[in-house]
Design a protein around this nucleic acid. Structure first.
Lengths: 365, 365
DNA sequence: GTGAAAGCGCTAACAA
DNA sequence: TTGTTAGCGCTTTCAC
């Protein structure tokens, strides 16, 4: 910040109060306030931070000037002199995904309640970006960094990325919604296995045995865990696992659509399908309709995440919910606790609930 | 930042390289680098910013140390001494809304390309928050502030809010995607009227005359403009406007659903309905299906925004697209140009394109 | 309770 | 080309 009008000196009236359209005002500082109030800058600072007593009379005089000039303390200077910036940085894989959007918002609210500010960068699922964004936050000296999805979802941690994060951890706590092997990160994640169990139990209770699983990549931890559980539960019931019923792919509409079309090419149709998320489920729905069948009468469809999509589809989706507020709060609290050296639980799992809507029903004969 | 280990002095080796799990490393500064490289801090700064020539030999020596220690320049200090922070702040009404998410991402990418960083705060559509978030960015000295939706969408500007923004404008340029009367804000917005025109022309070409408009509040500028155009085009064609066909409400699924149910209560059904956005359209679809009718055979449904929702519904929605990348780029460029005192166009309108999908067809008799 | 002064890490005149 | 120096705006000992 170059001084806009000379060096520290007298304040030149409510600078440009009326003609604000052209000139850029001189930035007001605590020195200006101090001078006009006839006190020292430190006193102004004290009334600002509020962590030291100032004689009432002076305090009011200062406060009045602050209001009068609409004084805004410079967060940069504050962060520079103070130990903490009271800010968190979150790097999200893709904020357009309602899942991440919901988690982010929950974090934001929780952080705000705890007096922290939260900034967001988006990595667009591109790894280079992910590291870049982390670097940006590091430069900005956020007190902690939160990684929502992306690399931290990988089943086997990328070595180079892990190394980078490990380096970051030496100065800034990092919390992830996945896992990052051999790295001192805090992990707050959804119990994918439990979610799958709820879905399977639900389907079993409707008499389903031929169950497909569509979408998702097995090199993604949560997907892998889901698959493991899917497989295990089938075996527990003595149901033979049909390899063709597991169609991996991506996490979007198209993956669901393509995956379901693949299923339709098989000799024997499943009576139910588990979509890797709500997006995939919509694609699956489409494919089924196009094949002239109906949900849930001919085929049941269930999925994960309970994003708003699950209420928009016809039929509405049976899916697993995560209590986003709770999830977000846990993430924010963990980050803040770590930032404040209060050593939070390094590994937290959050539970899930089944939300039954219209897309699931009794197995068709 | 309190010094973590003594004052400026010699660097104590690659501090904690191996046992990074517990100790927080001493923060490295350009002084450390300078000392070890045997140059002055300014030289280090020069190689960092790259805007002054440094003899190759020294430059390399410095660069090596930067790499070796994984030195991260402190953005706070940089912003404090420099004129600009090269950062923008965006306050979005609700990032879960795919429309805002898309715009934000487009802005982010454009800004990044121009060497700027972009931070996001969410106002959750709560006005108090909106002002608070603006304040936060002001404190952080972002070079410009972008307001995506929220108060700036209001048809009649809230006086108090305008006053606040006017005050902000005196130090930081503000660009909005709506309008803010009597305020020196830059405005980059979608031509709502043109969008409606495209939709109506499309419906007219299919022979529709009984056209409803569902969702949206008339005190929101874009909605108001849409309504004006809707009304005008009906009159142009000599079609009597049926007041009952205009059902205002919100911008979500429920508004569409409720609105369409209201329409079904009327004696004469419209043959087409214009939804205020994709969300409302999904609700409308649901209502129509529940009434045993089909889209577009019985009723055509068209909407605005072309968010990904329009491809997920069955049938897929005919809607208006905005070229989000272009839109985002315009916003970012305007903000940056303003920040750099290059006086951008204070009012930009972006065009729209019709995307015809499955939800619209010939008027049923 | 209050002020003086030093320092946070960086940049940019100004000299040399 | 390079180093010296003086800030940027705020917080925080340390005296008083």
């Amino acid at each position: 910040m170059k001084p806009v009008a000379g060096t520290r000196g007298a304040l030149i009236g409510p600078a440009g109060q009326e003609n604000g359209y052209v000139m850029k005002d001189k930035t007001i500082t605590i020195y200006d306030i101090a001078q006009e109030a006839g006190v020292s800058p430190s006193t102004v600072s004290r009334v600002l931070t509020g962590n030291a007593h100032v004689r009432r009379e002076k305090r009011e005089r200062v406060q009045n000037l602050i209001d009068k000039y609409n004084f805004v303390p410079n967060a940069l200077a504050k962060g520079l002199s103070d130990t903490m910036t009271r800010s968190l940085g979150v790097v999200a894989a893709d904020i357009r995904n309602p899942f991440y959007a919901a988690v982010f918002m929950a974090c934001e609210q929780a952080a705000e309640r705890l007096g922290y500010t939260i900034g967001l960068f988006n990595s667009l699922n591109r790894v280079e970006n992910e590291e870049e964004q982390i670097e940006k936050f590091r430069q900005q000296k956020t007190d902690a960094i939160i990684l929502l999805g992306g690399r931290v979802d990988d089943l086997v941690t990328n070595t180079q990325f892990a190394e980078h994060v490990r380096d970051v951890c030496r100065t800034t706590p990092v919390v992830v919604t996945g896992k990052l092997d051999r790295t001192p990160c805090y992990s707050v994640r959804i119990d994918a296995s439990a979610a799958m169990r709820q879905l399977m139990d639900h389907l079993f209770s409707f008499g389903h045995e031929r169950i497909a699983m569509i979408g998702g990549r097995l090199d993604v931890t949560s997907t892998y865990e889901k698959y493991q559980t899917y497989s295990a539960m089938l075996h527990e019931r003595g149901i033979r696992e049909n390899g063709e019923y597991v169609v991996s792919g991506g996490y979007d509409y198209q993956s669901g659509y393509d995956g379901m079309n693949r299923i339709f090419a098989l000799r024997e149709r499943p009576t139910a399908v588990v979509a890797i998320n709500d997006f995939a489920a919509t694609g699956i729905l489409r494919s089924i309709i196009e094949h002239g069948l109906s949900v849930p009468d001919d085929i049941s469809v269930v999925s994960f995440d309970n994003t708003y999509l699950s209420e928009l589809t016809i039929p509405k989706l049976t899916t697993t919910d995560y209590d986003y507020d709770h999830f977000g709060r846990l993430i924010a609290e963990t980050a803040i606790a770590a930032a404040e050296h209060r050593e939070p639980d390094p590994e937290v799992r959050v539970g899930t609930t089944l939300v039954v809507r219209e897309s699931s029903g009794p197995a068709s004969v």
